[in-house]
């Protein structure tokens, strides 16, 4: 009896394994599974590919803004911390989206397995994490220099950051990225600065008198909402044809 069974080549085997994995693996259900999957092939270098200058500029601008807030905002410390807290997130997004649109890379990225939406979602987590890390020393230094309550300042800044991130995701889910990232800073600036210009004493008094524990709930709500919306954003179908 002839047992000479033709065996597949290594290439055929790899192709078959790829097909089986592709069919059998559960779909990318949330941002964390995407993060896990991407970290295997992507790495930090690729995550920030081409946008290193944007990150550098953002960090520089954030440092300057926070220095000004910490050094000069004694009268309006709480309001200033609330208004300025999302700055790193805001500036990073504005610069990155501007650069990506200008580079014309979106058409090529849009036909890859991992689209710009996937990469953006992971970058959001990174920028969010960076913002949280920056907000902690800012609150600590402001607390020491301007005799503010560290925990109050920290909760205010987390609250502002998550609120901004949630608003940005809401916009990103319904409009083009370039519209979302350019409109929201204007809206945020207006909403925060107008009450301050009108009656900064009342605004500051209101924020200072808020019990710290009352800020914990909004922080948790906005943080949960942020991850819910981020998961929805990962599954967004975007058209890149006009980029």
């Amino acid at each position: 009896m002839n047992y000479d069974i033709p065996m597949p080549t290594a290439e055929e085997k790899n192709a078959a394994v790829k097909v089986i994995l592709c069919e059998a693996m559960p779909p990318k259900e949330n941002v964390f599974s995407l993060l896990r999957e991407l970290s295997g092939v992507f790495g930090l270098r690729n995550l920030f590919f081409g946008i290193g200058d944007c990150v550098y500029l953002t960090v520089l601008l954030t440092f300057l803004l926070y220095t000004a807030v910490v050094a000069m905002a004694k009268q309006v410390l709480c309001s200033a911390v609330f208004t300025a807290s999302p700055f790193l997130y805001l500036a990073a997004w504005l610069l990155v989206v501007w650069k990506e649109e200008k580079s014309g890379m979106l058409t090529l990225q849009g036909v890859c397995k991992y689209t710009p939406v996937h990469v953006s979602a992971i970058r959001m987590l990174c920028f969010g994490g960076m913002s949280l890390l920056v907000d902690i020393p800012v609150a600590a230094i402001a607390g020491v220099l301007q005799a503010g309550d560290f925990w109050k300042l920290l909760m205010l800044s987390f609250c502002a950051l998550f609120l901004y991130a949630v608003l940005l995701l809401c916009l990103l889910l319904h409009c083009k990225a370039r519209f979302a990232v350019s409109v929201l800073p204007v809206v945020w600036g207006s909403l925060c600065l107008l009450p301050l210009l009108k009656d900064y004493v009342q605004c500051e008094t209101f924020l200072r008198n808020l019990p710290t524990y009352s800020l914990v709930l909004p922080v948790i709500v906005f943080a949960v909402l942020y991850f819910v919306l981020l998961n929805r954003y990962v599954r967004k179908e975007e058209e890149y044809a006009d980029c």
Binding site: V41, G43, G50, G104, T107, Q109, C112, K113, Y114
Partner: peptide, 30 residues
Amino acid sequence: GYLPQSFGFYKGHTVRQFLLYLAALKGLGK
């Protein structure tokens, strides 16, 4: 696989860096 009529790129990167980035987006290991 797609080659558009014209495509953008980050000017400061080398050909290999550019291709490595796109390979990562396509799910290829380094």
